[in-house]
Write a protein that binds this DNA or RNA. Sequence first.
DNA 1: ATGGCTCGTTATACGAGA
Length: 259
Amino acid sequence: MKLATWNVNSLRARMPRVTEFLALHAPDVLLLQETKVAPDQFPADELADAGYDAVHHSGGQWAGVAIVARTGLGLTDAVAGLPGEASPDEARWIDADVPGLGVRVASVYVVNGREVDSPWFEDKLRFLDALARRAAELAAAGPLIVGGDFNVAPRDLDVYDPAAFAGATHVTPDERKALARVLEAGTLVDAFHRLHPDEPGFTWWDYRAGNFHKGLGLRIDLLLVSEAVAGGLATCGIDRNFRKGGKPSDHAPLLVELA
DNA sequence: ATGGCTCGTTATACGAGA
């Protein structure tokens, strides 16, 4: 099976690139974040034309997550929202079964945090704690794949200039520990890290200052898979071409293939 | 880098993103 996760920074603005991605890679499942779309504006018909079903948690102009699955696989029992998150209306989590693949999948857009020690930073840590509890609950029931924008760079290697990020969000010990607890709670494996332990694997580059072309990025988008299915990990990589060309997102999609 | 780009907004400057 092939799955991908992609923070698209507005699904409506990115639909041409999303349909291009689906046609090129033909993933079984695509997890989307920052769809930034109102519920009644979600482009379900365009995705259906591309051969995909979707379930989504849409909150309007901010955040928003979706699960897109190839038609015929099934996409059932969707649950939107994360029990225990600080602001349930922000549309940052959805999980659903994909019967044709025999897995449950989740798409997550973790709270950004803005500034360390701000209320938003506290919300971010609480959100990660709630994520850990939900991951444990879901993982106990069967194979689980959680993908999304975690807004945490797990290691200094995942940051283009660790010194420049000293004291900033995304790299603090508190955030990294909270992310580690998510993996522990769900017995989940960071797919890219498992297959490429010594590579940075950046997935995000600031739009400004030519950072993409300078290689100044962060690895903050992750695909986490149950240990039970991690033995089937075949490939995991980033398609940097989708960070180039016409109207790219500031994130590139991350793909994984599992036996 | 000192917020340099892009998104949505009952817009026409501002907030948010990381």
